[in-house]
Design a protein around this nucleic acid. Structure first.
Lengths: 190, 190
DNA sequence: CGCCCAAGTCAACGGTTGATGACTTTTACA
DNA sequence: TGTAAAAGTCATCAACCGTTGACTTGGGCG
């Protein structure tokens, strides 16, 4: 969080645009579509608020852009399917700062109740998560299995985001990890 | 949705209070803490917006009140544990209007990103859902199993709320129901 | 009937939000 | 170097929010 006192990014449209995009991604993930204000986002990006509207047209268009610059969720969809449960459980219960690819999930859940964000969310959800996931799973009823596992993952991510996980001791954490891996695997296997 | 043109509730503090509470519950469930405005809630309850603040002090206190007038979630926690999965799956995939007891879950997920609502949410979540659930499950690591199953249920509820379920045909619905019951059961059993 | 307090209404406040148009500063090129 | 367009800033708008205080209405009790 400690920023250089005055990095003073030289005038560079592309870099400024990217800075706004990064700030927006963080804010949307932490506060949702409604909760994140353009002024906050602009302040994070060390930019005047008017520039955000200038570059992206509107808040909703900025939101769509953030959703579209989709991250590396596909890394989950590599490796043995038989160990998918363990892989995702590790990832989910890791340090929240390493959630990289899960930022999108946070954005989705935090913005689920905003009508303006609903439609972009639906589209992005399918294109970025559900469809690749189903393709990775393969086999019979892949879409249903993908949806089920996706819902479980989202639920766990939400739960962690809400409770901050300060309510389970180390032993509970280990147990949760073991069981979570098992249940995800059960949801995923044909 | 079609209301009587003029029921014109007689001056009755208790009834008015209840009407506000009901309207608030619906609005919070559909739009979340931030999204629901006191003016909308008051309009639903056929009441001036000022009355809401008068009766409940503040929006946050109204929210807490809504959370505390907890519903009949306990009905899920009755009957054979061996059929818990099927029971909840039926309930979850039912007509959204029958979600009665699941309203609270919707409220929670839709309000998860509001700082003002976060703390009441945590408390209510434990008292109204998690603890009774763990007590119902019993056996080893009941809290972890309750949490896991709760996360899954919440994830599915969110998913339905976002997508409106217009993306699965009848066959997919049946398949989803079958698999969901199985996965919930896997999460619940010791 | 007439009073009086509860129940309900109205108008307004300060604050925040997304968006817009006019303005100033910097960069890059001829 | 001079200049035009890009990049960034500023002030401001209308809309909405939660909340408050002063006001009006109504029903029940004497």
């Amino acid at each position: 969080m400690a920023e250089n006192p005055a990095p003073v990014r030289a005038r560079n449209a592309a870099a400024t645009r990217q800075a706004i995009l990064d700030a927006a991604k963080n804010r949307f993930a932490r506060e949702g579509y409604d909760g994140a204000s353009l002024r906050e986002i602009a302040a994070d990006a060390r930019v005047d608020a008017a520039l955000v509207s200038r570059y992206f047209g509107s808040k909703e268009e900025l939101f769509v852009e953030v959703l579209n610059c989709g991250p590396d969720a596909t890394e989950l969809f590599q490796g043995e399917l038989s160990q998918f449960g363990e892989r995702v459980a590790d990832r989910l219960l890791d340090d929240p700062d390493r959630h990289d690819g899960l930022d999108h999930l946070l954005i989705m859940l935090r913005s689920a109740s905003s009508p303006a964000a609903a439609e972009p969310l639906r589209r992005s959800m399918r294109a970025w998560f559900h469809d690749p996931f189903a393709a990775y799973l393969g086999g019979p009823e892949a879409d249903v299995r993908a949806r089920l596992a996706g819902d479980l993952i989202m639920g766990v991510a939400i739960s962690r985001a809400i409770t901050d996980d300060h309510d389970l001791d180390a032993e509970g954490q280990a147990s949760l990890r073991r069981r979570l891996a098992k249940v995800i695997q059960a949801a995923v296997e044909p």
